[in-house]
């Protein structure tokens, strides 16, 4: 899997690269419009993270070029501008997703995985890990072939963990993803704990477990 990160802010670009490298992707980076344009012209990428405001040009122009060569659907726009206009324009130009800075690593991971997963979709949209099967389309969980009932939020939580398998998912990242982003964190950590406790009960027979990490977040690991 080859991923291109187009982002002019050095620190952010390096962090993103380091994080995605943990997933064993091949990472390439571009810090400005022209470098990005050259790389896009020469190589094919499975996923492109594209910042809109770049030195030397607008990221949307790159997106337009990608659209012409039918490669726009792998693009996730990452922008500091939470502007509806840019979002609509970006999605119109065929970008797969639009992520507003700042975002959690877990969130970026999930979005990248979603792009890659869609790309590889061979008719079925499901994740199989160990003795567990999650049907994304039908929103169903099977453990050892037996269906385990999940409520809507539990399904979202589990899906998020699976997209971030073996990675740290902080409580805030989880709360934002599942319950919307303007939730007051301090108020909700107890609630998240309670939800995770319920989910753990349902996963008792699975060969996966949700481990607490330093009291800051959780990690889904294979037993």
């Amino acid at each position: 899997m080859k991923i291109l990160i187009i982002e002019d802010e050095d620190a952010l670009r390096e962090t993103l690269a380091a994080s995605l490298a943990q997933e064993h992707f091949v990472i390439e980076t571009a810090a400005d419009f022209h470098t990005a344009r050259e790389k896009i012209g020469v190589y094919d990428y499975d996923c492109i993270l594209l910042d809109i405001m770049l030195p030397g040009g607008n990221g949307l122009a790159l997106l337009a070029e990608l659209k012409q060569s039918d490669k726009a659907e792998n693009v996730i726009i990452i922008s500091a501008k939470d502007s509806l206009d840019d979002k609509l324009k970006g999605l119109e130009l065929g970008a797969d997703d639009y992520l507003t800075k700042p975002f959690h690593i877990a969130e970026l991971n999930a979005r990248v995985k979603a792009v890659l997963r869609r790309k590889k979709l061979d008719g079925k949209n499901r994740i199989e890990v160990a003795n567990m099967l999650l049907d994304i389309g039908e929103r169903l969980l099977f453990i050892n072939g037996e269906q385990v009932p999940l409520n809507r939020k539990e399904f979202d939580v589990l899906n998020y963990f699976l997209l971030n398998r073996n990675r740290l998912v902080t409580k805030t990242a989880l709360a934002e993803h599942v319950w919307g982003d303007d939730i007051d964190q301090a108020d909700n950590f107890d609630f998240i704990y309670y939800q995770i406790k319920n989910l753990r009960k349902k996963l008792q027979t699975a060969d996966l477990s949700i481990e607490a990490v330093y009291g800051i977040g959780y990690k889904l690991v294979e037993k």
């Binding site: 802010e9 620190a11 380091a18 800075k101 740290l168």
Partner: peptide, 23 residues
Amino acid sequence: HELQTPLAVATNKLELMLEKGNF
């Protein structure tokens, strides 16, 4: 707006640090 990027860097660096580090 200008604060968004530094905040993004700070959040992500700390998250990475927690993942990698042995604290």
